[in-house]
Design a protein around this nucleic acid. Structure first.
Lengths: 242, 242
DNA sequence: GTACTATTATCAAAATTTGGGAAAAACAAG
DNA sequence: CTTGTTTTTCCCAAATTTTGATAATAGTAC
């Protein structure tokens, strides 16, 4: 629809590739003529987004990408503060704990401490899920601006009005309770609890999620929820103290 | 010279900002009209590079940026393997140890373990230096393709033929010895030793650098160099085992 | 409602991208 | 040094896009 931002395509291609890419390979992957590929690669090189690693090697992420990565670690500033609490929660519960972050209409798993006990789960470090299903998603969505909630309803629920109002009601409850809970919404037989993390200024930074096979929850439910909330609150507190 | 790739400017602006930026602020920072800023932001949003955090908040890094960051952590895959060895080296020597990476014509400090003892040094995590001066730079440059070496000579040495041949001779020695050593080239009164790290296929991944005030080197020199080389070799070995 | 800010739409001139193919440069091997 | 191969730059006119001032619209707070 919009004017083909092909430079961005090329950038994404090179900067997310597992290894340096030759100009020829870029032109194939991005589906553009070789001469155009060269032109774009030159642009990206000049603005520092990518780097020419030399003949027979190819192009790779450049200094600007490093700055972006480094900046993304504002998340990892949160991560640094979150890790000890995640460890503690995982130790107390003997279960898997994740640090989640909302990005657009997705939830991203920034970090994950895997329980020694088995768990078949769609989340792992770096993986993402739609923002509409599961405790982790809803714990975030509930505190996101209306506009995002609307977008999620439209894009992921297909705008179904019943589902929409049900979700909004649920989100309201989550705001009131301060946590979200789900069972089998993302993975069959997996129970989850998640609580939001806020930085100063009430900005939502992410959420802490506990993920457990439903069979292992039993009468620990209240305790697990409580401990998850405590962990999230402790992280928020640390964020406020810095 | 080239057609102004302003989308890239906008991307760099948003993706490296410490906090979400409003469209207005982007137009100011990038020095472009507001209407153009909106157009570019929309493009970037549609390709997933940035995300609209909602009214009154602004635009921030998006999913693609996260992928880029995550991918850059192929470096941090190296980092994960390097950290223990860095710790060990820092402990043995009681000095500061850095993990360096070459990017274009610069050396970047990916990670830095600071010695408890004082050291005034231009390197710290995330900072960069030109690829032409200092042990860290030369330990990398020596194993980089000719084209990069040429570029460094032209860009940073101004093409002076004497300096050029001196540098090339020095690089040859470094290749032969397997390490680089310098004194006062980057910071006055700071001595450094650096050895390259290779991944399978002899690809240069980075280097390990030891940085010490010259006054603290004394007769430890040989030992320090040896230990630095050992650390770098140990990391390369780990990389080959994975 | 009004006042205000944020965002999208419009549109014709101006600038830039596009891509196929030629030419040149870089490099390896004989 | 010469040849063969690959990589990279150059060229240029047609086609497409970008540009940005301004106007219209949407959303919010009072």
């Amino acid at each position: 629809m919009s004017g083909a931002e092909r430079v961005l395509d090329v950038l994404a291609t090179v900067a997310t590739a597992k290894e340096p890419l030759s100009a020829k390979r870029v032109s194939e992957l991005a589906g553009i003529p070789l001469s155009s590929a060269y032109r774009h690669l030159t642009s990206l090189k000049e603005s520092g987004f990518i780097v020419d690693l030399g003949r027979d090697i190819g192009y790779g992420p450049g200094p600007v990408c490093m700055r972006i990565a480094q900046n993304f670690d504002r998340t990892s500033h949160v991560l640094a503060l979150a890790l000890p609490e995640m460890q503690r929660l995982s130790l107390r519960t003997q279960e898997s704990v994740g640090l989640m972050k909302a990005l657009g209409t997705d939830v991203y798993c920034v970090e994950m401490i895997e329980s020694p006990l088995s768990l078949r789960c769609s989340y792992s470090k770096g993986r993402s899920q739609p923002l509409s299903r599961g405790a982790s998603a809803k714990a975030l969505l509930a505190f996101l601006p209306q506009s995002v909630q609307d977008e999620v309803c439209d894009r992921l629920l297909g705008g179904n009005p019943d589902e929409r109002s049900a979700l909004l009601r649920e989100l309201k409850a989550i705001r009131a309770n301060g946590y979200a809970e789900s069972e089998g919404e993302v993975d069959l037989g997996v129970w989850g609890a998640s609580a939001p993390i806020f930085s100063p200024g009430e900005r939502l930074e992410g959420s802490i999620s506990l993920m457990i096979p439903s069979t292992r929850v039993g009468n620990r439910r209240d305790e697990l929820v409580q401990q998850t909330i405590e962990a999230a609150k402790a992280i928020s507190l640390r964020l406020h103290q810095v």
